[in-house]
Amino acid sequence: MSDHYQVPETPAQENISFELNGEAVTRSAPSGETLLDILRESGQITSARAGCRVGRCGACQVLLDGRAVPSCLVMAWQLPGHHVETVEGLNKDPDFLSVRDALASESALQCGYCTPGFAVSLVAGIRQRRQGSTVDLTESVAGNLCRCTGYGGLRRAIDQLSAPGYPDEADGQGASLSEEQ
């Protein structure tokens, strides 16, 4: 009854054009391939890492049009026309550098496997904040898992990044045990 539509040829493989760290790229990939695999197979991107492949750990977090998303949940067919950023492309971005310095100075990492994902989430959070969002930076890392640190260093780093006027006037005061509500 509704089969009067012409069914288009639907190949499993297609040419996918998108922007990666500011440069236009085209990749031939299966429509269902994950962005994570597309990035890693290029050999150029190692910061996005497979931790679960079901979008639940944040180790593969990248920016998609400025929003932090798990790249294992983005499929190739969804990419055309969009802009993907990874920490490889953020290494001169002032927000990323603030995040990097805060994470390093507070020793917010141990094995480091999850850390680029955290950095991407924090960069997205800082950008949102600049656009007027009042969202707590701690909410931006709610989807990132770290098994090494117990998040203590991350808490201190986020305190640093959340200080008024950071990075210019950061006072670096961490939350104390006694300041709980």
Binding site: S47, T86, V99, R100, T115
Partner: peptide
Amino acid sequence: GDSIRNATSGMDLAQRIEGRLAYATDQR
């Protein structure tokens, strides 16, 4: 926090944060 910040060695931390450190499963 102070005892951390004064002591942290930045040696390979930046590399780790930037995702430049090659893990066992990165060796393609």
